[in-house]
């Protein structure tokens, strides 16, 4: 059941992104989409709107890049509660550490191992 919900929520988030790319008159590149969804996810999360989505969709809400924004925002909020002002600076990056490290390490390894095929 949770797999189906992940499919639906994950699909819907991507659908929104696709509609933004296709229906707006601006030239929306993947970079714009990724930046927009990270910040959007973080803001929604801080307003308490993204948490419920994660409860319903599981990976469907955490795997889209907006879930990364959610992770950053929740990490920051928790750290602010625990450590005060210092937490505002450490919380987000600590929470996102696993994803960032994985992306950099795997990215580097793949770049060393493979050549582009064109």
């Amino acid at each position: 059941m949770s797999i189906i919900m992940a499919f639906i929520i994950g699909g819907l988030i991507c659908l929104v992104g696709q509609l933004i790319m296709d229906l707006t008159p601006y030239k929306v590149t993947p970079a714009h989409i990724l930046v927009g969804f990270v910040t959007g996810g973080a803001v929604l999360s801080a307003l308490g709107l993204y948490g419920p989505l994660v409860k319903i969709g599981g990976a469907g809400a955490t795997i889209p890049i907006s879930g990364f924004g959610h992770l950053l925002a929740q990490g920051t909020l928790e750290a602010v509660r625990a450590k005060g002002l210092l937490g505002a600076f450490t919380g987000g990056i600590t929470a996102g550490a696993a994803g960032i490290a994985a992306a950099v390490i795997f990215g580097f390894c793949m770049a060393v191992l493979f050549n582009p095929r064109g």
């Binding site: 790319m21 590149t29 993947p30 582009p116 095929r117 064109g118």
Partner: peptide, 18 residues
């Protein structure tokens, strides 16, 4: 050349773009 032009003007060739 398709691949030299792509990477200069647009995206790296392996980037998943439409």
């Amino acid at each position: 050349h398709y691949d030299t032009a792509e990477r200069q003007y647009r995206f790296p060739t392996e980037q998943g773009v439409q």
